[in-house]
Design a protein around this nucleic acid. Structure first.
Lengths: 343, 343
DNA sequence: CGCGCAAAAGGTAGCGCTACCATTTTTTGC
DNA sequence: GCAAAAAATGGTAGCGCTACCTTTTGCGCG
């Protein structure tokens, strides 16, 4: 009894072709370029496929055609609301294209990122979207070897691997802090968590804006590598106030911290902005509906995801954008929490 | 000039085998079962692979072996914080296993879900995790045809496709509302958004708890199919108060709405809980740090993701759990926002 | 009515890997 | 010290699909 390799038992393209009375290659074309078939054959293949419940084998397709219809996406966190907006943009833009998104989570670890990139490499994605511009040399080497369009998102900077869509966190933070100063605030604290590269650049903007106004004081700075959360914002404000009780404003590394700071102010019966101004970063949805509404830096997260995919898809089709680096900018949303000081 | 099919140009296993002086199949084994090689060959293959920078071709592997090392995950939303916790559990549990997660977003559409399931089917994942228990008949048929372990998460119910990890949204809502009543609240409103199946079951719990106490009144109910947000919570409370100005408590379909309700109360100078009690659902991180702290129903989201993956992985290895349906329960977190009424 | 050309369809030969045996080498038991 | 069992290795033949090229068909036109 001849024992041959077990077949998968699934319907194959050949069976569909046979039922439709065409050659396998014609059936194959039906799924890839239906307009290349004559209407009669198209009809026959379609009904044969439906009758048999044919499901194409993507692995076989990928192997034979040497390409996949997958776009890999690397993001550092799923918990952070910021990325959910980026992802919405990514998913929306990929909708309708025949590409599907493969998401991976680096957890803010560049080593994890390196590993995931190698995993993606084995998958030969048609395109790649990675977060940030601080990859390891090894990661860069892998990306450069991947031979597919790559978009770095969230930031802009020199020396893109391929394409870039983002904005300057430094400039945005600089603008936010520079807005507070003429409003009459002097003892402006910085609270930051996670301290990933982007938060560090925001800190840089804060520092330089403060120095430019001769207001910089290291006692006004409270940071932690702990992942960000709303609760953490409260503790960090408590720390800040114990170090610098005369703090009259806080620039927060992100909006979650800002909301935590607001709650802590409420708990301490500090009124905002009279006793304490608050400025956040990202302008998440709740900032406008908090009481009082909180000032923040609006960033175009949805659009960032959307453009990254659009650029990658265009590049796959050979239409590279004229300018590989796109700066989407930011917008300071001034609200009651940073109103001019009356004192 | 003979024109043959273009090779990918990448290093293949054969090349690695040649350099290592072993047969291709031995090299292949090195990557799948290294302990089956003698130490000397293992060493030689390893260094050959490294020297050539070999990257395995996953498509070829999947085609030849008839399986993949991918677990498909279908969730309805990326924006909703609830799922980010589930996803963390999923990613954490898959870490270390050789399986990778392929995430897809149904956007609360069962038709989208159907389509994505078909896409997954073509990929032959080793396992599948889907959200909820309300799939279309067509979706169920696809899942049953997929011949891989499947876990439904977020809810428990009768008739699992395969396995289930969740809790009863009905019971949780019933418990939350039943807690409010003996505290002295009578005119307890319900605000809900999105109104996906789980929120509808929460509403069922609310309704039945209210009816059981003879407090049910349709004027106390405000819902919208619009996706949930914090801001929306404020508008829904406004609607509720215009329909039923004597409302003295609100049970919110989720925590975002609850926070929005809190902000709206602050805006209207209604004190919580004296003028208005608030109860949310899910117990997101901010509930405990809000001012006042907000009562909510804690759900084991992280654990849900973790167990789902653990169960699927075990099932892949042939170790099906004795009980296919796991109820992770819930916990009512009573906080100041639902303190006993003084009036 | 045959010619030329484009469109449609088909044949062949892999894509890079692993399942399934068969074979060789090493270990073990007595 | 030798047979039997176990471990390590190799040869062969696909997995299901599509690239590449060739052949057939359809059709307008002189």
């Amino acid at each position: 009894m001849e024992r041959k390799r077990a077949k998968s038992g699934e319907i194959r393209l050949t069976e569909v072709a046979k039922l439709a009375g065409v050659s396998p290659i014609t059936a194959s074309r039906f799924f890839r370029k239906p307009e290349a078939l004559s209407p009669s054959k198209r009809e026959r293949v379609a009904s044969a496929a439906k009758e048999l419940g044919y499901v194409p084998n993507l692995a076989a397709r990928a192997l034979a055609s040497q390409r996949t219809e997958v776009i890999g996406v690397l993001i550092p966190s799923l918990t952070n609301n910021v990325f959910s907006d980026v992802l919405r943009g990514i998913y929306d833009a990929s909708e309708g294209s025949r590409y599907s998104i493969q998401l991976a989570n680096t957890r803010y670890s560049i080593l994890q990122e390196e590993q995931l990139l190698r995993l993606f490499q084995a998958q030969k994605p048609a395109g790649l979207i990675v977060t940030g511009i601080d990859q390891t040399a090894e990661s860069r080497a892998v990306m450069e070897a991947m031979n597919c369009p790559i978009a770095q998102i969230m930031e802009v900077g020199p020396d893109p691997v391929d394409m870039m869509v983002g904005f300057s966190h430094y400039d945005a933070a600089f603008a936010a802090v520079s807005h507070l100063i003429p409003q009459g605030y002097q003892r402006i604290g910085f609270v930051g968590a996670q301290m990933d590269p982007r938060v560090q650049r925001r800190f840089g903007g804060y520092r330089d804006a403060m120095k430019a106004a001769s207001l910089f004081d290291p006692r006004l700075i409270v940071t932690t590598p702990v992942p960000t959360s709303i609760t953490l914002g409260g503790s960090l404000l408590a720390d800040l106030l114990s170090k610098a009780p005369d703090t009259d404003a806080v620039f927060c590394g992100n909006d979650d911290l800002a909301l935590g700071v607001l709650f802590e102010c409420q708990r301490r019966h500090l009124s905002v902005p009279e006793d304490m101004a608050i400025v956040g970063f990202n302008d998440l949805e709740f900032m406008a509906s908090a009481v009082p509404p909180l000032t923040s830096v609006r960033t175009n997260r949805y659009e960032m995801g959307r453009s990254a995919v659009t650029m990658v898809l265009a590049a796959i089709d050979g239409n590279r954008p004229p300018e590989p680096v796109v700066d989407l900018g930011f917008q300071l949303m001034v609200r009651e929490s940073s109103s001019p000081r009356r004192a």
